[in-house]
Amino acid sequence: MIDNFSLGLTHGLMLLTAWLLLRRPDLDREGGEAPKGFAARLRPGRKRDDG
Results as ranks from 00 to 15, higher is better:
Gly32Pro: 00
Leu20Pro: 00
Ala40Ile: 00
Arg29Pro: 00
Ala40Pro: 01
Arg29Thr: 05
Asp26Ala: 02
Ala39His: 05
Met1Ser: 14
Phe5Trp: 10
Pro35Lys: 07
Ala39Ser: 13
Met1Val: 09
Asp3Ile: 01
Asp3Cys: 05
Asp28Gly: 13
Asp49Tyr: 12
Met1Thr: 12
Glu33Gln: 11
Pro35Ile: 00
Ala34Lys: 09
Arg43Thr: 01
Arg41Lys: 15
Leu16Phe: 06
Leu20Met: 15
Gly51Ala: 12
Ile2Gly: 04
Trp19Asn: 12
Asp49Arg: 15
Arg23Asn: 06
Leu13Met: 14
Lys36Thr: 10
Leu9Ala: 12
Thr10Ala: 10
Asp3Thr: 04
Gly12Phe: 01
Ala18Leu: 11
Leu9Gly: 02
Glu30Gln: 11
Leu21Thr: 04
Lys47Ile: 01
Arg48Asp: 08
Arg29Gly: 02
Gly45Asp: 07
Pro35Phe: 01
His11Val: 09
Gly12Glu: 07
Asp50Leu: 11
Gly31Cys: 04
Arg46Leu: 03
Gly8Pro: 01
His11Trp: 12
Leu16Ser: 11
Thr17Ile: 06
Pro35Gly: 02
Leu16Trp: 05
Pro35Gln: 03
Leu21Cys: 07
Asp26Phe: 05
Ala34Trp: 02
Lys47Trp: 12
Pro35Val: 00
Lys36Met: 06
Gly45Phe: 03
Gly51His: 08
Arg23His: 05
Leu15Ser: 15
Gly31Met: 04
Trp19Ile: 13
Asp28Thr: 09
Asp49Val: 03
Leu7Ala: 11
Gly12Asn: 06
Gly31Trp: 07
Ser6Trp: 09
Gly32Arg: 07
Trp19Val: 14
Leu15Lys: 15
Gly51Tyr: 05
Leu27Arg: 15
Phe5Tyr: 14
Leu22Ala: 11
Arg23Phe: 02
Ile2Gln: 12
Gly31Pro: 07
Leu16Pro: 00
Gly12Lys: 05
Gly31Arg: 10
Asp3Val: 01
Met1Trp: 09
Arg41Gln: 11
His11Cys: 10
Leu7Pro: 00
Arg29Gln: 15
Gly37Trp: 01
Arg24Ala: 06
Arg41Thr: 03
Thr17Phe: 10
Leu15Val: 05
Asn4Gly: 14
Asp50Glu: 14
Leu9Ser: 10
Lys47Arg: 15
Gly32Thr: 03
Arg48Phe: 06
Leu15Tyr: 12
Ala40Glu: 11
Met14Pro: 01
Met14Thr: 09
Leu16Glu: 07
Arg23Ile: 01
Leu16Tyr: 06
Gly45Trp: 05
